[in-house]
Structures are given as structure tokens and as C-alpha cells.
């Protein structure tokens, strides 16, 4: 190939990588994440855009496993929302940012306290709408209290794990680039050595690009 430039693959690919990394950051910036924990009979959650910006006044829809809408609400100024769970079923929380970004989070039935009724609700519960007997069973209020306090304490941990996952993502990207460049360097070194041993008896004859 042509002269001195062949050994320098050029700055351009490096520039591509850099520019793509920047766009990757922007695309990531538009990621929407929702985090929901159970506190007593409430589903307490927050929605934020990935670099820790709260998502304000977004629609939150809660559906059951069958797709029925159980509740709807909107996030407050800090991106938080709270929804009462009325039945002990899988809850699917869908946060819609309104601009094409949707985040979902699932709370499994066994994360909810035993005091809630199992699905489907008995006709009795639906009849007496105003008075939900969530805490009516004796001896369950202390259990609810423990659930609530544990949930409160675990919450920052879950948020930390969430942030940590984002960090790992970037480490993996850099690690992958490192693997590729290392592999390329290895292949280059090996082919160089092979060529040196090939070249010793006669002149170097390389295959030409047809």
C-alpha cells in the first residue's frame, strides 16, 4: 500500500470513537428510570432522567398482570409519586414522560404485605368501597410498621445500586474498546513476527489487494 501512512491508521477512527462516545452520553442522558419500593400498603416511587434529574408531572399508570389499569397519578415536583395498593397482585408501574420515554417497574405480589387481599378481590370488598379493611386483621399493624421502616432504610441502597449500574455500563464500554485494541495489537505483533521469519530466506512478497 502507499508509503509511510499505512502504519498510521489515522486519527479519524479515534475521532469517530470519541464523537460516538459523546453521542452515547447524550442518548443516555435521555434515558428514563423509575424506582418503586413498597412502604406498607403504598407503592412509593420516583422517576428521573438518567443524570439525576427528577421527572416532574409525568403520568404514572399502574396496571395488573392482566393489563387492567389499577390506578393513575402524576409525579410531583421532586419526581416522586405514591400509590395505594388495594390488592396483593403483581403491579406494573408505567411512567410516561410524554416525549416517547417510558419506564416500567414491576412490584411482585409477594413484596406487598399480607394484610392486602389476594386477587381477585372478594365482592364484599368492592361493596364497601370507602372502608378498605387493609389493617383490620388483628396483629398486622406491627408487621406493616416493620415493612415500612425496612423499606425506608433499603431505599437509598436501591438508589445506590441503580447509580452503580450506570457506572458499570461505562466501565464495560471502555473495557470493550480496550479488549478490541489489545486484540488488534496482539494480531499485529504476531503477524509482524511471522513476516520477519518468512522474510529471511527471500524478499518480502505480500499478497496484493486485487
Amino acid at each position: 500500500m502507499s508509503g509511510e501512512n499505512v502504519n498510521k491508521p489515522g486519527l479519524l477512527p479515534v475521532l469517530f470513537v470519541v464523537s460516538l462516545s459523546v453521542t452515547a452520553g447524550l442518548a443516555e442522558a435521555h434515558g428514563l428510570k423509575a424506582l418503586v419500593t413498597v412502604e406498607g400498603t403504598s407503592l412509593v416511587g420516583s422517576a428521573h432522567l438518567t443524570p439525576r434529574r427528577p421527572l416532574r408531572h409525568a403520568t404514572v399508570t399502574v396496571t395488573g398482570t392482566d393489563g387492567n389499569v389499577l390506578a393513575t397519578t402524576t409525579t410531583d415536583d421532586a419526581g416522586h409519586f405514591r400509590i395505594e395498593a388495594k390488592r396483593r397482585v403483581d403491579h406494573r408501574i408505567i411512567v410516561d414522560g410524554g416525549d416517547g420515554h417510558v419506564a416500567t417497574y414491576t412490584i411482585r405480589a409477594d413484596e406487598l404485605p399480607d394484610s392486602l387481599f389476594l386477587s381477585p378481590p372478594t365482592p364484599l370488598v368492592q361493596a364497601g368501597e370507602g372502608s378498605l379493611p387493609a389493617l383490620s386483621a388483628p396483629g398486622t399493624d406491627w408487621r406493616t410498621f416493620i415493612d415500612q421502616s425496612i423499606a425506608r432504610q433499603i431505599r437509598p441502597l436501591r438508589e445506590q445500586i441503580d447509580a452503580y449500574q450506570e457506572k458499570i455500563w461505562w466501565h464495560d464500554v471502555l473495557g470493550g474498546i480496550g479488549y478490541i485494541l489489545g486484540l488488534g495489537g496482539l494480531a499485529f505483533g504476531l503477524s509482524r513476527r511471522r513476516r520477519r521469519t518468512d522474510a529471511s530466506p527471500s524478499t518480502v512478497t505480500r499478497r496484493n489487494d486485487p
Partner: peptide
């Protein structure tokens, strides 16, 4: 051309 191929694989 190995370095070029490797860099483009990274891209």
C-alpha cells in the same frame, strides 16, 4: 491494516 481494522471494530 490490522490497527485500522481493530480501531474500526471499536467504532
Amino acid at each position: 491494516r490490522i490497527p485500522q481494522a481493530a480501531l474500526f471494530a471499536a467504532v
